[in-house]
Amino acid sequence: MIELQQVTKSFNGQKVLDGLDGTVAAGECLVVMGPSGSGKSVLLRHIIGLLRPDSGKVLVEGKSVPDLSPEELRALRRDMGYLFQSGALINWMNAHENVALPLRETTDLGEDEIRSRVQRVLALVQLEQAAEKFPSELSGGMQKRVGLARALVTEPRIILYDEPEAGLDPEMSANINRAIRQLKEELRMTSVVVTHSINCALTVGDRLAVLEHGRFLVEGTPQEVLDSDMPRVQQFLGAKRD
């Protein structure tokens, strides 16, 4: 479970999060939409402890993330996955080595078990054939799918997706969205998805929130939010539908 209580964050005097409240129940998928620069990625970085709030609380599994020691934070992150917008693959390692990295660095698993797990998640993102390729030999979409495989290989209980379908063609976007939905349903992962895509929100989200001016303007099931009569929400989502 993830809880955000009155979270405030400013950069150079400009408030990005302004008393943000929100909850993601265990096994639930919250989709966060909002204009560019509204603080969606900043929100994810607070949840995984890359940023500390100026005030307010960020609780993950009941633990206050900003108050954790480096060791406690590392232990918490082992239960979390994070898909970066760019994939953020280590450039001198091939796809297999990138996916295997968290297992080699943070577990005592043998090489056979690591190989089998890596092959399983690469198959999930349809990249078994690209295991030996380096990031520079992969397209942007393929890099993102390797990034997704790397986020999933440790079988985390919580996973955060930063624009999972950005830069992908429509067919691959649909595949990624289906994979996220499948993971949520089969593994009961708690997930937060930051996206600009209504299709993604409708496919994967249990709940949808629109973030602007540092707070959620509206929150509810995707259909409730789409039916919202708030002018700003309609303006934003209407533009996305077009």
């Binding site: 995984i48 890359l50 590392r74 232990a75 992150r77 082992r78 979390m80 994070y82 970066f84 917008q85 760019s86 953020a88 693959l89 280590i90 450039n91 990295l101 968290p102 660095e105 943070t106 990034g147 790397r150 440790t154």
Partner: peptide, 21 residues
């Protein structure tokens, strides 16, 4: 380059010890 391309952040998120690695 790794830092500005989020690769170092990715290592932190993966609980990899950046100094050691």
């Amino acid at each position: 380059t790794m830092k500005v391309q989020d690769e170092v952040t990715a290592l932190e998120v993966l609980s990899v010890d950046v100094v050691s690695f």
